[in-house]
Design a protein around this nucleic acid. Structure first.
Lengths: 226, 226
DNA sequence: TGTACATCAGTGAACGCGCGTTCACTGATGTAC
DNA sequence: TGTACATCAGTGAACGCGCGTTCACTGATGTAC
């Protein structure tokens, strides 16, 4: 990777790295092509050699943010590691809780990147096919979650009938928890209060899933009339 | 309310109304003092007679958005109305589901206002005491939710031990569900798919709460070691 | 009832900002022969 | 190995945008006497 004076040699990556740094501190709205070019020490329009426009750069940072999120979830799984091999049910339950914790830890630990990661919707750029191969198979937050939920079914903890939609339940809970603490009224909550609250959320989901295969409780129509 | 040519007579409210309209269409970032003044037909700095700065205006719109959110939740409760008076447990469960539905309906039906309502955090302006009295007592999303959860305890459906933190569970789920559909990968989901998914989320929470007083399931430590 | 005056709610011009994007360009690089 | 040339990756100037905010101001309003 040459670092020649004129031909930068690595401008695209440098811009992305600078962008990540800025995104960490200032979130999506803080990302400006001119500012990034300035930081990298290059004229303000050189970036157009590497990105079609600002959105393309933001999209790239979003992708990295998403990757960081997945990595944090994976780190949660790694923390569970090979423990409880003798009790696959407990193990699967711990794994679900672990990715939830990883998700929230990333969101609150890297608020800027987390925000950027979700900043391109509704008109998110469809990830071009050739980029998808860069990601490990099934490595998006949704994919990882689905995997762990499937495990819960396999070990007989989550009833197959309750499997569809379970991913949306889990994702909504951890995402909402994160966002309410990031950009909502729960912002500023003490760390240990927050941690306790998260454990309760995870435990509640676990309890619900347990109940799908546990002793029967008669189902009640919850949908509103009409 | 005079509508004189020079002295507008109602400028503050007119600005807020215009702001709400713009917020509906464009969300928080679309709100600009100059633009609003233009819409109302007044010079671009007249607004400073009524708002300290842009943030003050946005804050006001956020307040109205929050009020709309509460109203939607309340509308959910009203839909349950006086039904199932003979079965207070079922009634309380339906009421919880109803405010959840109201929340999500507002979020997805008024995405701009919903976004504005949550746009002022982390540095949300503390609502000045004199404004708080304008709101009905307990009328914020959190207050209403807490009220309904208390009912669930009173009727014996939700175990008192499970009461703390339950509001965060519920709020996280519906908020996350909303945000993932608004500014996340679930955006663009078909309406009926989304509705079905929401019902499953609500049912899962209900199931978990049922399990707190239902037949005992042995609790398992879910917290990660360390 | 009439008038003097304080106060209030607007106006219009201006400052300064940083941005995204395009244009015509030039210096560096690498490749074919 | 040397050279001509195409291509690529930068530069610098400029356009046009809309914004927030401040300034000194003036027209309208209402009130005290």
């Amino acid at each position: 990777m040459p670092t020649a004076a004129y031909h930068h040699g690595n401008l695209r990556e440098s811009l992305v790295e600078a962008a990540i740094e800025v995104a960490r501190e200032r979130g999506p709205d803080g990302l400006a092509l001119r500012d990034l070019a300035r930081r990298v020490g290059v004229s303000h329009n050189a970036a157009y050699r590497h990105f079609a426009d600002r959105d393309a750069l933001v999209g790239e940072v979003a992708l990295r943010g998403m990757a960081g999120l997945v990595a944090a979830m994976q780190a949660g799984l790694d923390a569970v590691g090979g423990t409880h091999a003798e009790d696959p049910v407990l193990r699967a339950r711990l794994r679900l809780a672990a990715i939830g914790r990883g998700y929230v830890e990333f969101a609150l630990g890297e608020p800027g990147l987390f925000r950027v990661a979700f900043s391109s919707y509704p008109d998110a750029p469809e990830l071009p096919a050739e980029r998808k191969s860069e990601l490990l198979p099934g490595v998006d937050p949704f994919g990882l979650l689905n995997q762990v939920l499937d495990e819960l079914v396999e070990v007989g903890f989550l009833h197959p009938d309750a499997r569809p939609g379970a991913e949306i339940m889990c994702w909504s809970a951890v995402h909402g928890f994160s966002v309410l603490h990031l950009d909502g009224p729960l912002n500023g909550e003490e760390t240990d209060v927050r941690r306790g609250a998260l454990e309760r959320v995870l435990a509640t989901i676990d309890l619900a899933f347990a109940a799908t295969t546990g002793p029967p409780t008669e189902p009640v129509p919850l949908a509103a009339p009409g």
